[in-house]
């Protein structure tokens, strides 16, 4: 079974950027979409299908949850919040990136980045 809970599996780019967006604050779907575009410097532009497909998978894996307390929203939009498991998952992924960057730096594959 596909399970991110043990952190042995890498996150997909969509899941990674959604978790990154939700690390700041609770957001609704379109808010997530805009934040992902900004965080990825326009490199990841998700459509609604990919966004909500990823969110559904993340809800099942308990990486995110629906957030209450946004009743002031007139259009009754659902907001999402990152869970502890989600924070742990993105932390693990960032650690993997960090070690990969260290290696890349040693090999002088990324001379412009200082670690």
């Amino acid at each position: 079974m596909n399970n991110i809970n043990d952190q042995s599996e890498n996150l997909t780019p969509a899941v990674f950027y959604i978790l990154l967006a939700l690390s700041r604050q609770d957001l609704h779907g379109y808010g997530i979409m805009k934040q992902v575009v900004e965080d990825s410097q326009n490199k990841i532009k998700m459509g609604p299908g990919t966004l909500y497909g990823s969110i559904q998978r993340m809800l099942k894996d308990k990486l995110v949850e629906e957030a209450d307390g946004h009743a002031k929203d007139e259009e009754r939009r659902k907001y999402y919040r990152i869970t502890k498991l989600g924070t742990k998952a993105i932390g693990g992924e960032l650690e993997r990136y960090q070690s990969a960057i260290k290696v890349a730096k040693k090999l002088e594959l990324m001379p412009s980045i200082k670690v």
Partner: peptide
Amino acid sequence: DFQKQHGLEMRQTFDEL
């Protein structure tokens, strides 16, 4: 199931796009 859970949100997102 997907439509029930996210259909309305997808329409809202489409409008905002």
